[in-house]
Design a protein around this nucleic acid. Structure first.
Lengths: 195, 195
DNA sequence: CCGGATCGGTACCGAGCGGTACCATCAACG
DNA sequence: CGTTGATGGTACCGCTCGGTACCGATCCGG
């Protein structure tokens, strides 16, 4: 198979490295506050290469948001799965994982929702909807296993708590507290969801 | 008293009109997407006048965020008060009022949190903290009257639901549903907060 | 009626932006 | 070995931004 793998000219590797840098910079300082020139110089590529891969800055932003959404969702799924089959344990694991994230010095809230708040484009709105749907799937599975009378409604409540905790943590001086508060609220809602 | 009131040269009136325009434009399209020139021309004032009143664009943004925070909080307080003394009724009134807001075509989420997401400055972080504290006071009073064992903790849970509902409504095709979901979650949490 | 202050309008500045053109380089392949 | 295609570097373009300087008009108190 003719797949290049260590080469300097591997397009996939270049693209991925570029997305890594874009994710970091855009998340840390905001999409508007970082120019494509800085992304290029930090990633060690030229502007031509960036534009050949992504077409425009918007294209770069959307590609990085999509990848980020998929990764953070998979990360939460893994955390839930590792907690075993009990729905309460899985929900607890989700919020505990969030707590670890919130406590990082670089934490700035949900990158997907931040991006759509900063640039309300049709593409980002669509990506945000997909992002939230992934979360809904995760939370609905927990609600179903917990015997919720209205699993979809319960999942929506849990999603509001999750996003609310994330948003409040992003401006709070004690972000880890937001995860604990969210976990308590989520567990209470899950318990109340059985008819 | 020498207060000018109808004059074209009334500084307070000019300042207020300027803040009205800034509130609308910055909220509708984002702080970065609107230049001071457009704010001035829409408000019918010159750039000199704007800079004499606010010093810089950041000053204008902070002044408009502070006013918006105070107004929306007072609006929610009034909605709760009008619902009578019962804590459940007041909490319901808060989320019903939010539902009316969410349903407006111009709704774009919480203007205060949007602003701090777009421009993470120390001033805006401070204003956001004050904004959330106002909400905490409103919700804590409800939690106390409902006999919550941990009123502050319950208020924090309700705040997460409120902000989560607002954030999700801002990207949802059915924003009013978010208010109903939030109301149900908030009432369930309030019920679960006793002992 | 006049002097000072404030107003709106406009031209302007330096800087940074997103995006493009051109070129020398270098690896891959026939 | 020569061709091809992708790369990094750099200069450049048109545009818009936040912010300032200057001007003539307008209002006000004395």
């Amino acid at each position: 198979m003719p797949v290049p793998q260590g080469s300097t000219l591997d397009p996939d590797r270049t693209r991925s490295a570029c997305l890594d840098v874009a994710t970091e910079l855009f998340y840390a300082r905001g999409v508007d506050a970082v120019g494509v020139a800085e992304v290029c110089s930090t990633a060690g590529i030229s502007k031509q290469t960036l534009y050949r891969h992504f077409g425009s800055k918007d294209g770069l932003v959307e590609a990085m948001v999509e990848r980020r959404s998929e990764r953070v969702w998979r990360w939460l799924e893994d955390a839930a799965t590792a907690a075993g089959p009990a729905p309460q344990a899985r929900l607890t694991a989700v919020f505990d994982a969030l707590g670890g994230w919130f406590s990082e010095a670089e934490f700035r809230g949900c990158g997907v929702m931040n991006a759509v708040t900063q640039h309300r484009s049709a593409g980002l709105l669509r990506l945000a909807a997909r992002h939230l749907d992934r979360y809904r799937g995760l939370l609905a599975a927990i609600a179903v296993d917990a015997g919720a009378a209205d699993a979809a409604g319960t999942a929506e409540q849990l999603l509001q708590v999750l996003e609310g905790a994330t948003l409040l943590a992003s401006t709070s001086p004690h972000p880890a507290d937001a995860a604990r508060t969210g976990r308590d609220a989520a567990l209470a809602l899950l318990a109340a969801s059985r008819t």
